[in-house]
Nucleic acid binder design. Structure first.
Lengths: 142, 142
DNA sequence: GATAGGACCTCCAGCTGCTAGAGGTTCAAG
DNA sequence: CTTGAACCTCTAGCAGCTGGAGGTCCTATC
């Protein structure tokens, strides 16, 4: 029987986060000690590892919830799991593409900076003047 | 004199977002019409464009706040602006690197999937088994 | 058996960067 | 003068946690 602290250490999760996963129903309500403290077993350790690994791969908690449902019903076709992963891959690729544009623009900004005074600073100039924008990365966010 | 709606359209910002920027002190409190509606001028349009452009480049609102302060004091050396941009570039490059690892792992996951049943699905298997992890992308998040 | 102090408990607030809705007012065109 | 779009304030919510307050439990050592 593992305490929540041990579970946290083993999975690289914060204690609070585990309790948070419980409140949103991603982790089950575990057994309790006589004094009311949470006690976990192997199943919970596995489940939490799955969740954490999914998060590291950038899956949303909702996507992970779906994947956990699939994992709980192993006789179904795996096309669903596949399509969740595909969706995720596409998002990752989009993000990479957008970040690469930013990278280029930031580099250009920095290398052009004359290092004299703010008045002639390329960094601020580029931000001021939208027309110098390289491309159409017009969405903001993740 | 521009209404908030016009300002919103011109900068590709939502009206609510402009008001939000005002509450957090990123945009100034503008003049008002007799009836109490916000009226903006060129200065505010420029400032908001600066903010939006910064956001598109992935700067946090805090970083943008710093950059705006710099822009307001143009006689200072621009090293500060430069270092903010450098910091941003580094973050962008880190994110790209981590996303590329994920991309690889997701691709591997998907291509290995036998498409039979969930029981033999690589996608779920990979998530279950942390040891198959390629690398040390052990932080979560943007 | 007592005690110390670390780990646990619940509950609530806050973070970033918005976004949406309710319920009401103002503005400008016809 | 009416209509209806655009504006106003205020509040609450999203993801995905994180931190703190104030209190209880557990276990190792004396």
């Amino acid at each position: 029987m593992l305490t929540i602290g041990t579970l946290a250490k083993r999975t690289g999760t914060k204690v609070q986060t585990i309790r948070y996963y419980e409140t949103i129903g991603l982790m089950p309500e575990p057994e309790r000690s006589l004094g009311g403290q949470r006690r976990y077993g192997q199943a919970e350790l596995d489940r939490l590892s799955f969740v954490r690994h999914g998060r590291q791969l950038g899956f949303s908690l909702e996507a992970i919830r779906e994947l956990l449902n699939l994992a709980d019903n192993p006789s179904q076709p795996c096309a669903d799991a596949d399509s969740i992963a595909q969706r995720q891959l596409k998002q990752v690729e989009d993000r990479i593409a957008r970040l690469q544009v930013l990278q280029l623009e930031l580099k250009r900004m920095i290398s052009d900076c004359t290092h004299h005074s703010v008045a002639e600073c390329r960094v601020l100039e580029v931000l001021r003047d939208h027309s110098e924008c390289l491309t159409d990365h017009d969405q903001i966010g993740a």
